[in-house]
Design a protein around this nucleic acid. Sequence first.
RNA 1: GCCCUCGUGGUGAAAUUGGUAGACACAAAGGACUUAAAAUCCUUGCCGCUUGCGGAGUGCCAGUUCGAGUCUGGCCGAGGGCACCA
Length: 845
Amino acid sequence: MDRYNFKTIEEKWQNLWAKNKTFKTKTDKSKKKFYCLEMFPYPSGKIHMGHVRNYTIGDVLARFKSLQGFNVLHPMGWDSFGMPAENAARQNNLDPKTWTEKNILAMKSQLKKLGLSIDWDREISTCTPEYYKHQQAFFLDLLEKKLVYRKENYVNWDPVDETVLANEQVIDGKGWRSGAAVERKKLSQWFFNISKFSQDLLDGLDNLNSWPNKVKVMQKNWIGKSFGSEINFKVEGDLPVDNIKCFTTRPDTLFGFSFLALSIDHEISKFYSDNNDFLKFKEECSKTGTTEEAIAVGDKIGFKTNLVATNPLNPKHKVPVFFANFVLMDYGFGAVFGCPAHDQRDFDFAKKYKLEIKTVVKPFNENDDFEVKDEAYPGPGILINSNFLNGLEAPDNSVIETIKILEEKKIGKKQINYRLKDWGVSRQRYWGCPIPVAYDEKGNVHPIPKSMLPVKLPENIELKVKGNPLDSQKDWKEITIDGKKLTRETDTLDTFVCSSWYFLRFCSPYENNHGFKEDDINYWMPVDQYIGGVEHAILHLLYSRFFMKAISYNNKNFNLEEPFYGLFTQGMVCHETYKDPDNNWVSPEEIETIDGKKYLKSDKSKMIKVGPSESMSKSKKNTIDPENIILNYGADAARLFILSDSPPEKDVQWSEEGIVSSFKFIQKLWNFNSKILKEIQKDHKKDHDQEVEKFTNKLIKKVTENLENFSYNKIVANLHEMHTFFSKQIENDYTKKTLKKNYKDILILMSPVIPHFANECLEIIQSQNSNKWPTFDQKFIENESVTIVIQINGKKRGLLNLKKDTDEKELLSLVKKDEKLNKYLENKIIKKQIFIKNKIINLII
RNA sequence: GCCCUCGUGGUGAAAUUGGUAGACACAAAGGACUUAAAAUCCUUGCCGCUUGCGGAGUGCCAGUUCGAGUCUGGCCGAGGGCACCA
């Protein structure tokens, strides 16, 4: 038996696919399309197991759909702008462009070794001017549509690196790189008006039936729609202010009103700008306000003003006005109406400042004298102590009724609020897409004319300066448009902008004048199946959905509602963690197993502690390098193993034993292939064709269904079953023709998962051309005999193998003839019998 | 605190519309082949007794049903998301 030489065979097929451009896609409107896309990678320089899993899942689908006759678009590109390039460049004295290009080459060759069916002619890279010039054009379009604007906003400012940090880059109130305490700073920033589409983005979720529910729920919560009312409170006091607006979801609890709380950034705060006590209070607020958790568990603190607010439903009722640390400026109107009895946060605040706590809702099962004591009651019930609102059912009914009254009295009106905030896209960094605008001396914005695009990034720049390197590029910054001397915007776009439309670019990657051709978009979009990690559930997926709506906005030529028809989020790749006796993390390569126990290779006296299996990460040293795996076991074995055992949406445990077993299985299949080849040479007279036809047709049905449902782990099991079945049956006699036909179908079933192996075998049996996904024949699926479960009092007591459609009477007589079964029935009266044809009989005695 | 998802052998997991629980694989133990090892193949899997069979059994407690891993209610546990959103 010869060894399966995966090295030569995999290389042979990869070269052939490249030479023949097997996976090149054309826009062919006569064919049904299938757009299969995996989230494109950041070119870090090396692929990791997460990539292997992501791209294997996508490749299985792309190959399957292609064999089914679809015109498949399966492209790949690079999300190549971003900070790591800038950081690496600083460390290695290499410019980000060179570093990135080098990484792309390295990763591309690694991906190719996986044998992916990708149309590499459509490769794109977001850091090239050919890509980002279109992005700049989109920016200008959105500017014209007023979907982009500039505003002052608070940002996380790192005073050492002189740059803005994203929220996730602030760890415990400190910059992740510099370690400096992050400051709140007001800066002029560019914003995409994503909140304009809040309702559309929310409504669109209802139609995304092929998205995981989890992701839809996350987006729904993120958009955070709430229904309530805006109320205008009259205020009196020593300031030139006579009313304050609030948003509330519970106007029905107005009779429980006991204070008004304002954000420290509320416009009224301007009257306190020279009040030392207020400034002190403000500082205290910012201290607790660094981490989210500290905010949540932190004390509620307030600063009392001399203002008094009037209850609009009861003008005699006046309450104090506070500034409070828990009120956010960018939600509602930066002012909250406090009803302590029915909101825990208001309750805490009222306790601390000894404010009135008046109960106005009682639970359904309580009496009218119900009183809130130790904690607020936010639940449903009946309104009490509320004058003309008494007796209303809260909250649904009472809120609507109260709003009606407020609207009649012109005190307030119905209002819907969203938590979704506009998307700040300015980044004070070099390695990103330049924002195509300039400013005059007065700071007025001048868009760069489209004819002057792209605004290219300057090369050979000094990165070791503090802050944004573009700021110090005088030559680049100065520009003359229509004779006017202007200064360029030095901020670049958030890299999430690049990934918000790359799937459109893949449809027309060679189009020079526009980001895409409408013709191509209308054919290819939406992406039929998008595959990637769940960590992008909100940001990337929401931004992309927004981008489609933004470019479709006021556009007559096309209207794309949603970019991704189907979404699949795969689980992570995990591995056991190891520590040496000194509690240092140890990588799997440094370990040797002796008699089932693990020791350090370099010092065999040191035993290794095995920790739980966790998602692969460099910090825990539990990563496995895909390159080594492919080198030692081959791409097919790697693909097979990463799909085995765990369903693709769940985490998978990587193990040495697992990859070895996949590797061995391919060898078994190779041996099996040799056996079949011998059998095909003979032409037998005896005929077991029916059995093999039946098995194959059932296999086709199962594998096809499992592919449609992303049950890829079950396909691997199906292949094992196939091997076991044929190993037992091969000595039987089949006609040459049947065996060959069925074997060919089986090889096609294997080919999405282990394409190199399957194509090699198909070639050997001279059948690599015109391969189509096999279909099954119903007549082989149905059995003429069935196994019937015999239950007595609901307990399984035996099985009978009978002719299909045996009726109840005959079955019962057979049960009685069966010695084992009948012993349960002797001297008993059958009280009741339940019979389901071809399935079960349950006898109650 | 709120929202979502999930609890099945030593492990990863299978189980159409409620109808044979544990397919397939990993690990372990025992066996076969072999001078031996590797490789390969077979058996076992929780409790009880003798092969064979019987019993319990899908996180826990109830319920619906002839029949529940699957449906309903309550509880416990794990993972993920959000977090002063008024």
